[in-house]
Computed example of a mutant assay.
Amino acid sequence: MLYAYPVDLETNPDGTITASFEGLPGATDGTTREEALREAQDLLVTSLSVYVDDGAEVPVPPAANGRPLVYVPMLEAAKLALHTAMLENKISNVELARRLGVAESSVRRLRDLLHESKIGRVEAALHALGRQTVVQVMEVA
């Protein structure tokens, strides 16, 4: 899945720009459009981490309908994919830890969007669930 969510940008009377995501909690703002978009990426990761922490399904991004997209960073996207694979396969942290030969606390950290894990460890966990990661690099406008 491509973890890219359309962002709503609204210019406030004081000139700041508020960024928010349809169906996700929270909002942030910046003094410029570029700053608002940078802040929106942090907001997006934090908002999606709530679903992971609650053991809930991660919402599918809605149609952009002309709105700019904010991409979840690579590590966090891999962690979201791991969380989704675990839910789909009904695999617990304990079971995945057994398959990987690690402590259950290691799996908890692998699933924590706000923890700086090594991408190779997340890839290994995905592989243990029959998933393959692919990186796509795009030119930035």
Score class of each variant (00 low, 15 high):
Met1Arg: 13
Leu2Met: 00
Leu2Asn: 06
Tyr3Glu: 03
Val7Pro: 01
Glu10Tyr: 03
Thr11Ile: 00
Thr11Cys: 00
Thr11Leu: 10
Thr11Lys: 10
Thr11Gly: 03
Pro13Ser: 14
Pro13Ala: 12
Ile17Leu: 08
Ala19Val: 08
Ser20Lys: 15
Ser20Arg: 12
Ser20Phe: 07
Phe21Val: 01
Glu22Leu: 15
Glu22Pro: 01
Gly23Leu: 00
Gly23Cys: 04
Leu24Ala: 13
Leu24Asn: 08
Pro25Asn: 05
Thr32Asn: 05
Thr32Cys: 09
Arg33Leu: 07
Glu34Tyr: 09
Glu34Ile: 14
Leu37Gln: 10
Leu37Pro: 01
Gln41Phe: 09
Asp42Phe: 15
Leu43Ser: 04
Leu43Asp: 05
Leu43Arg: 07
Val45Asn: 04
Thr46Leu: 13
Ser47Asp: 02
Leu48Ile: 09
Val50Ile: 09
Val50Leu: 15
Tyr51Cys: 08
Val52Ser: 13
Asp54Pro: 01
Asp54Gly: 01
Gly55Arg: 09
Gly55Ala: 00
Gly55Val: 03
Ala56Trp: 03
Glu57Asp: 14
Val58Arg: 03
Val58Ser: 12
Val60Asp: 14
Pro61Met: 10
Pro61Glu: 09
Asn65Val: 03
Asn65Phe: 13
Gly66Pro: 00
Arg67Phe: 07
Pro68Val: 09
Pro68Arg: 06
Leu69Arg: 15
Leu69Cys: 04
Val70Met: 04
Tyr71Asn: 02
Pro73Glu: 03
Met74Ile: 10
Leu75Glu: 10
Leu75Ser: 14
Leu75Ala: 05
Glu76Cys: 10
Glu76Val: 06
Ala77Gly: 11
Ala77Ser: 13
Ala77Ile: 06
Ala78Met: 13
Lys79Ile: 04
Leu80His: 02
Leu80Asp: 08
Leu80Val: 04
Leu82Arg: 11
Leu82His: 13
His83Ser: 10
Thr84Leu: 05
Met86Lys: 07
Leu87Trp: 11
Leu87Gln: 14
Leu87Arg: 14
Glu88Asn: 12
Asn89Tyr: 00
Asn89His: 06
Ile91Ser: 03
Ser92Asn: 10
Asn93Cys: 11
Val94Glu: 13
Val94Asn: 10
Glu95Ile: 03
Glu95Ser: 07
Glu95Cys: 00
Ala97Arg: 12
Ala97Met: 11
Arg98Phe: 04
Arg99Asn: 02
Leu100Gln: 12
Gly101Val: 06
Val102Asn: 08
Ala103His: 15
Glu104Arg: 11
Glu104Ala: 15
Glu104Leu: 00
Glu104Gly: 01
Glu104Trp: 05
Val107Lys: 04
Val107Trp: 08
Val107Cys: 08
Arg108Pro: 02
Arg108Ile: 04
Leu110Arg: 07
Leu110Asp: 12
Leu110Ser: 08
Arg111Asp: 01
Arg111Ile: 01
Leu113Gly: 08
Leu114Ile: 04
Leu114Arg: 12
His115Ile: 04
His115Leu: 02
Glu116Lys: 10
Glu116Gln: 14
Ser117Asp: 08
Arg121Val: 02
Arg121Cys: 00
Glu123Tyr: 05
Glu123Val: 06
Glu123Pro: 01
Leu126Lys: 15
Leu126Phe: 12
Arg131Val: 07
Arg131Trp: 03
Arg131Ile: 02
Arg131Phe: 01
Thr133Ala: 15
Thr133Val: 15
Val135Phe: 14
Gln136His: 15
Gln136Asn: 07
Met138Ser: 11
Met138Ala: 05
Met138Asp: 08
Glu139Met: 15
Glu139His: 12
Val140Glu: 10
Ala141Pro: 13
